[in-house]
Each structure stands twice: as structure tokens, then as C-alpha cells.
Design a protein around this nucleic acid. Structure first.
Lengths: 344, 344
DNA sequence: ACAACAAATGCAACCGATTGCATAAATATT
DNA sequence: AATATTTATGCAATCGGTTGCATTTGTTGT
């Protein structure tokens, strides 16, 4: 392996008989440098295969052009879509993304934060793990003035901005839709209620029930980790209820799809016997039969907005300091899984 | 925002009345430093909230502990799973991952490579874009001695290692399985044949046909970009063939699932009229009805192996220089979508 | 022709950690 | 006790850009 030696601005300077400072300025398009000088320097740089040593540069400028991202999991449709959005924006603004996953554990999340801290990220984008209870582990970064922006799964912090959808409204609309279909015994399957997303959707569910004079019933609300393994148990539970629910609002499309499969296997018709509404508009929603009614919110957009807000803040083109929350749009997409016939 | 000033080894040195060199060595657990001195230094470092300035460190050591990853898309089940595997391994070895997506375009891929180049990644993990035709744009990195490892969608290069599955064998087995079900007119829907993965699967398909004395027929092989929009057109095409194929081997589960949906809508029964085999074992395979027979290969494992190989090489614990290719395991998972009854 | 000013370039310190070599202190050897 | 060895620490150069300030060169005005 014949490694070529790196060329530096000093090499360029020497060859052109000028000072390194001029080279540096020329390469950074500094206005004080003569345009012809610039041209010569730039062409020489190209000739020598020069690339800036960002470490020297970062060291001096105390900026890394790197954004850290911590997500519960990389490999969910929603998250990977969010990341795709972030990557796009970051790339365009010539920021790098360092991505880490907490695998739904606070412990790993804390380690990730520490890594990000040591990597001197300019800012941080975070969606919290399943069991994160507070934001204490982010304090070191906050103290150093590193801006942190939470998205989707958030906790509020007076110095951080959150990007979310209106989960309460989404839950409300989903439930209302089921009520409008004539359902009376609406079950709700959701995740850890400590997470805002699930908590708020539950609130929306309850609000819709209350408004329609339907009784809220604890045994109709179940939480799960959305693992594939737990589907059967859940279906067993709900089909043994009396009466069996005539609708289920499930805050996860993947889980909802598998519930549909299991329920059909158990002899129920969807949506006639049980109407189903999911959440996230995962591609799976268009494949499961009947197609799944779900709440769509655009992961790509959330990623783009998150990254853009952070980068604008870093470039001081705008500040997110006093923006407490950014609420993105979501909508109920009605498909066959929740459409009962004309009458109840 | 009250930014605390960063503490440096000089601050620690001054407070303890020792030299920065000693502090540096102590923090790096250098054997020449007295254990008590180390203890004092480390506790002082903790007290002051010290964190190493990796830029200074990288600048000096000419190593970044960063691995670049370029993938066609972040948001596919397979890729995000691969990335999850890479992240896990990298994190454990305290490497950072910089992730970029080419969005299936060489042009973007070239830009990504340039970014990685300038970011001074220690190594690069790449899965090629849809229309990449050669590896010229990687040469600058190769010349600098940066190891590059291609995975899944690869091109061979004498200085780079590839990590793949045996696509020929997988295609062969998938096709053979359909033949064993009694299918005579087996269609093959696949991607850009310039990509090894599709090319090899086609070879396997042809081999299986040939071995069984079945005629290879060009009109039964179609390439697509696997976009959702193109499904209907494709189904229209294949159902107008005479005779209509009695089986399809589709190298993408997502596409296969939608084909099943469309074919059922068009009045065909799956698998009785048309048997289907997909590729990748996407979660969608377990939801579509009938469940999809597919080739499973473990993305997480591929990611882990790729990252581990590269990191071992970087740490000089082993060299991938003379390893040309690493072949991972894959297997046909038979489900209902391809199981015809007893007889043909 | 000379002051006043603008434009272009250079000087040198600086960012913070690392490391080869020298040195001081402590311990072992004879 | 004097010398050899080991152990622990310090000195100072180095990595490669960046940037405030000084300097040189060039232009304009009168």
C-alpha cells in the first residue's frame, strides 16, 4: 500500500512562493484575496490533490460541522425515513451526521450521549428510548451550550425544542372515526405511557370517548412493546373480553397488521366484526388485507424539519432557543380496515 | 446561554502543578505513569468536566475513529437493518459512523465519496447505487490507503473486499423450488442487471431452468426499479402473456407483496394460478396473504460482519487486504405463496 | 509629487493533545 | 558509597489551518 503523503497548505504555499495564510484565505474564498491569486492557488491545490485537514480546522475554529442523532432503533420504517430526511438536509448544508441507536434502553442512551459529548457534536437530535424517565444525562451537553432538539418521542425541557405531531388530536380523530363507524367498544393498544406520543394519543382516545358519551374502560386499554411475539397473547386477551371489542385503535401499523392477520385466523372479519385503525402509515398498511386505516405523518418531513431547525440555529440564521415546540401535520388515512357498511 | 469554558489538559496540569504531558499520558493510561498520579489526575479531570478534544487528538495521531457508510437508501428494511448491525459493532469498538445515502444515483454517490474523503474517514463501507458503473470515484481514497469494503451491491476491485451472499445459489434455489412445485412458465422480475445481486440471481434462475430442461425465454425476464407505481403496469404485462406465467420469482419482497395484491385483484389465486417467491424476508412477507416465500439473508449480520472486518483491519488485528470476498449465508424460507397442492 | 487611503499579502500566535528524547528521582547492584 | 537500572516526569516540537494585526503595494485625489 503506497500511501501518498497528504499535501498541506504549506506545500502549496511553498510551491507558489506565497504564505500559508494567503493559501488558507484563498481556499476559503476570503474577499481580501486577489481573484487571480485565488485561481492559481485553487488550481495548484487541485493538482496536488489537496484536501483540508478538518481536524486542524475544527481545532482552530471550535466547530465540528457534525450533528449527532440518537434514535431508539435504526431499522423501523418510520425512523429510517426520518433519518433519510435528516441526512438529506444535513448533507446539503455540508454537515455530517453521527448516528447512534439506544435500542430502547436508557442505559445505552446515556452511553450514546457521552459518545456524542466526546465527539463534540455541534448539536444533537434525539428521539427518546422506551424507558427514559428524565433528561438528566443531557445536562452536560446543555451546560456546554450544545443545542438539543427532541423529535417524536420527547420530554420537555426549558432549554430544548421539541418536534412532534399533535398526538392528542391524532388519537382523537382516529377514535372519533371509529365512533362514527358505529363502534361502541373501542379498544386501544399502545406503548409505554410514559412516552408523550402514547400518552397523548390515549388522551385523545379518552376525549373522543367522553365527547360521545362512551364509557372509558380500563380493560380496553393495553400497553405492549409491539413485539411480534406478543401479538397472539394480545389477540387471545381481547377476544376473550365480553363483549369482544368492535374496534381497536393500535398505535403501530406493524402490530396492527399482525393483529389483523391473527384476528382473521381466529375467525373474525375485519372490519365487520372488528374495525382497526393503526398509526404511522407504514408501507405494510397497503399490503395487509383489508388495507389498514392509519394516521399518516411524514417521517421524511419530520427529519428534514428537525435537521433544518438545528442547522439554522447553529448558523445563527434563526434561533430555536425560545421555540418550545414545533408541531407537524398529521392526518387520518381511511382505508378498508375500519369501514363498516352503511349501518352499524 | 452560559457556556462553560472547555477544560484542557493544561488546566488540569496547572491545578495539579504537573506537566501537560503527564496528564495526557495518565488519561491514556500510559504504563510509565505512577498509578497514584493517575488517580489524582483522573479524579481532577472528572471534577473539571474534562473531555478530550478529539480534533487536537486526531490532528496529532492522524486517525479519526470514524467510519463512513454510503448506502443507496436509508429507509428500506434491509438497509436499516444492516446499518443497525454496523452501528452496534462500531459503537462497541468506539468508532463513529458517518452515514450518507446516494439515493440510487452515481452523481450523489460521488459527492458522498468526496465528503467522506474530506472527513478523513478511517475506512469506508459502501453499497453501490443503482446506476454506478465503475469504481473510479473511489480511487482517491484507495490511493490514500483508506480501506474500502463493499457489501451487498458490489463491484470487484483488486484492492477491496466484498461482502455478499451467494446470489447465484439463492436464485437457483428459489427457481428450483418453483420448478419442484410443478411450475413450467416461471417469470423473473428483478432490478438493474448491472448490479451483481440481480445479475447473479438471474444466472441462478437460468441455471435452474437449464438443469430442468426448461426453456429460457426473454419475455419472462423483466427489470424494474421496484417502485410502487410500476406494479400495475407489470401485472398488466405479465397477465397478458400467453400463456400466463404459473410462477414469478421477484427479487424484492415489497414489490412481490404488491404484485400479489394486484394479481389477486385481477382475479388470480396465489399460489394456485401463480406461485410467488420474493427476496429478503422483509417483515411484509409475514403479513401479505398468502405469506410470502422468500430468500432470507440477515441484514444485521451483514452489517456486523462488514463493520467488524473493517475495524479489525484498521486495528491491524487482521488484514482484509487479501480477502477478496466474504460470502454470507442465505436460505429459502418456504411459505404459502409458493406451495401448490399435491399435484400440478 | 505627496499625502491619504484601499487592496493584497505576510507574520506569528494559537487551537489542544501527543510523543521522542532528556532528565530527575528512586531503587537495585556490586 | 558509587554506579547501574528502573521508574516517573518534564521539555519542546509537532500536527495543519485560522486569524488579528502589521506591512507592502497600488490607487486616488489635489
Amino acid at each position: 500500500m503506497k500511501m501518498e503523503k497528504e499535501t498541506t497548505i504549506y506545500d502549496i504555499a511553498k510551491q507558489l512562493n506565497i504564505s500559508p495564510a494567503t493559501v488558507s484565505r484563498a481556499l476559503n474564498d476570503h474577499p481580501a484575496i486577489n481573484i487571480d491569486t485565488k485561481k492559481v492557488i485553487i488550481s495548484k491545490a487541485k493538482e496536488l490533490g489537496y484536501r483540508t485537514n478538518i481536524f486542524a480546522s475544527n481545532l482552530r475554529r471550535k466547530k465540528t460541522n457534525t450533528i449527532g442523532v440518537i434514535v431508539p432503533r435504526l431499522n423501523s420504517y418510520f425512523m429510517s425515513t426520518v433519518l433519510a430526511g435528516m441526512e438529506k438536509v444535513a448533507n446539503e448544508a455540508s454537515y455530517n451526521l453521527i448516528i447512534a441507536q439506544s435500542l430502547e434502553s436508557v442505559k445505552k442512551e446515556m452511553a450514546n450521549v457521552k459518545t456524542m459529548f466526546n465527539s463534540h457534536v455541534d448539536g444533537l437530535l434525539v428521539s427518546l428510548s422506551y424507558d427514559t424517565e428524565n433528561l438528566d444525562h443531557f445536562e452536560p451537553l446543555i451546560k456546554k451550550g450544545v443545542p438539543i432538539l427532541f423529535f417524536d418521542r420527547v420530554l420537555t425541557h426549558k432549554k430544548c425544542t421539541s418536534i412532534v405531531i399533535d398526538n392528542l388530536k391524532a388519537g382523537y380523530e382516529a377514535t372519533n372515526h371509529l365512533i362514527a363507524q358505529g363502534c361502541k367498544h373501542i379498544m386501544h393498544i399502545t406503548g409505554n405511557l410514559q412516552r408523550n406520543v402514547y400518552q397523548d394519543r390515549l388522551k385523545g382516545y379518552r376525549l373522543a370517548l367522553a365527547e360521545s358519551g362512551l364509557h372509558y374502560c380500563e380493560e380496553l386499554v393495553r400497553t405492549t412493546d409491539f413485539s411480534y411475539q406478543s401479538v397472539n397473547e394480545m389477540v387471545q386477551y381481547l377476544t376473550s373480553l365480553k363483549p369482544v371489542p368492535d374496534a381497536i385503535f393500535i398505535t403501530n401499523d406493524f402490530y396492527a397488521a399482525h393483529c389483523i392477520v391473527a384476528l382473521k385466523q381466529a375467525g373474525f372479519s375485519i372490519p365487520e366484526d372488528i374495525a382497526i385503525v393503526g398509526f404511522n402509515d407504514d408501507p405494510i398498511a397497503m399490503v395487509v388485507e383489508p388495507n389498514l386505516t392509519t394516521v399518516r405523518y411524514h417521517g421524511q418531513e419530520m427529519g428534514e424539519v428537525a435537521a433544518k431547525s438545528l442547522i439554522n440555529h447553529l448558523n445563527e440564521q434563526s434561533s430555536i432557543k425560545d421555540t418550545n415546540a414545533i408541531i407537524l401535520h398529521s392526518e387520518l388515512v381511511v382505508r378498508a380496515s375500519s369501514l363498516k357498511g352503511k349501518s352499524t
